[in-house]
Amino acid sequence: MEQGTVKWFNAEKGSGFIERENGDDVFVHFSAIQGDGFKSLDEGQAVTFDVEEGQRGPQAANVQKA
């Protein structure tokens, strides 16, 4: 798993970007967020995640709040 920080997340659209510790920013969709309840992330929040190849390039998967 990688570690990173939420660069921004739009709760209305359900997507945003995570700033990786090593590498380019990666797209995140709300469906990749693990946990119960409303799936959203806050700017500056620390997260851990896997990276998968999506239709438009790398994207975060199995996102967990650190």
Rank of each mutant, 00 (worst) to 15 (best):
M1L: 13
E2M: 13
Q3I: 13
Q3K: 15
Q3T: 13
Q3L: 12
Q3P: 06
Q3D: 06
Q3C: 15
G4C: 06
G4P: 00
T5N: 07
V6G: 04
V6H: 03
V6I: 09
K7W: 00
K7Q: 04
K7R: 09
K7E: 05
W8Y: 09
W8T: 04
W8Q: 05
W8C: 13
W8P: 00
F9I: 04
F9L: 04
F9Q: 05
F9K: 03
F9Y: 09
F9A: 04
F9N: 03
N10G: 06
N10S: 10
A11E: 09
A11W: 10
A11Y: 11
E12K: 14
K13L: 11
K13F: 09
K13T: 14
K13R: 10
K13D: 08
G14N: 03
G14S: 02
G14F: 00
S15H: 15
S15C: 15
S15T: 14
G16Y: 01
G16S: 00
G16D: 01
G16A: 02
G16E: 03
G16W: 03
F17V: 09
F17H: 03
F17L: 07
F17R: 03
I18E: 03
I18Q: 01
I18D: 00
I18C: 03
I18N: 01
E19C: 15
E19R: 15
E19F: 11
R20H: 06
R20T: 08
R20M: 08
E21A: 13
E21N: 11
E21I: 11
E21R: 11
E21Q: 12
E21T: 12
N22G: 10
G23S: 05
G23T: 03
G23P: 02
G23I: 03
G23H: 06
D24Y: 10
D24H: 11
D24R: 13
D25L: 15
D25H: 11
D25F: 14
D25W: 14
V26G: 01
V26H: 01
V26D: 01
V26M: 05
V26F: 04
F27I: 02
F27L: 04
F27N: 03
F27R: 02
V28S: 00
V28H: 03
H29P: 00
H29K: 02
H29A: 02
H29E: 05
H29N: 04
H29W: 04
F30Q: 07
F30E: 07
F30M: 08
F30V: 10
F30I: 09
F30G: 07
S31K: 06
S31H: 07
S31M: 05
S31A: 06
S31V: 04
S31Q: 08
A32L: 00
A32C: 05
A32G: 08
I33A: 04
I33M: 04
I33C: 06
Q34W: 10
Q34V: 14
Q34I: 14
Q34Y: 09
G35V: 10
G35F: 08
G35T: 09
D36E: 13
D36K: 12
D36P: 12
D36I: 11
D36R: 10
D36G: 11
G37T: 06
G37H: 06
G37N: 07
G37E: 06
F38N: 07
F38K: 07
K39A: 06
K39M: 07
K39N: 05
S40L: 07
S40R: 08
S40E: 07
S40K: 09
S40H: 10
L41C: 04
L41T: 03
D42I: 15
D42M: 15
E43G: 12
E43M: 14
E43C: 15
E43F: 12
G44P: 01
G44D: 03
G44S: 03
G44F: 05
G44I: 02
G44N: 04
Q45W: 10
Q45K: 03
Q45L: 08
Q45H: 09
Q45Y: 04
A46Q: 12
A46H: 14
A46E: 10
A46P: 11
V47P: 02
V47H: 00
V47E: 02
V47D: 03
T48H: 09
T48R: 10
T48V: 11
T48M: 11
F49G: 02
F49K: 03
D50E: 14
D50L: 12
D50I: 14
V51T: 06
V51A: 03
V51E: 04
V51W: 06
E52R: 11
E52W: 12
E52C: 14
E52T: 12
E52L: 13
E52I: 15
E53H: 12
E53R: 08
E53L: 14
G54P: 02
G54S: 10
Q55W: 13
Q55A: 13
Q55I: 14
R56C: 14
R56P: 07
R56S: 10
R56Q: 10
R56V: 08
R56Y: 15
R56G: 10
G57S: 05
G57I: 04
G57Q: 02
P58Q: 09
P58W: 09
P58N: 07
P58T: 10
P58R: 10
P58L: 11
Q59M: 09
Q59T: 08
Q59N: 05
Q59F: 12
A60K: 00
A60L: 01
A60Q: 00
A61I: 14
A61Q: 10
A61V: 14
A61L: 10
N62T: 04
N62V: 02
N62K: 07
N62H: 08
V63N: 00
V63W: 00
V63C: 03
Q64A: 10
Q64F: 07
Q64V: 12
K65N: 07
K65E: 07
K65I: 13
K65W: 08
K65T: 10
A66F: 10
A66D: 09
A66K: 13
A66H: 11
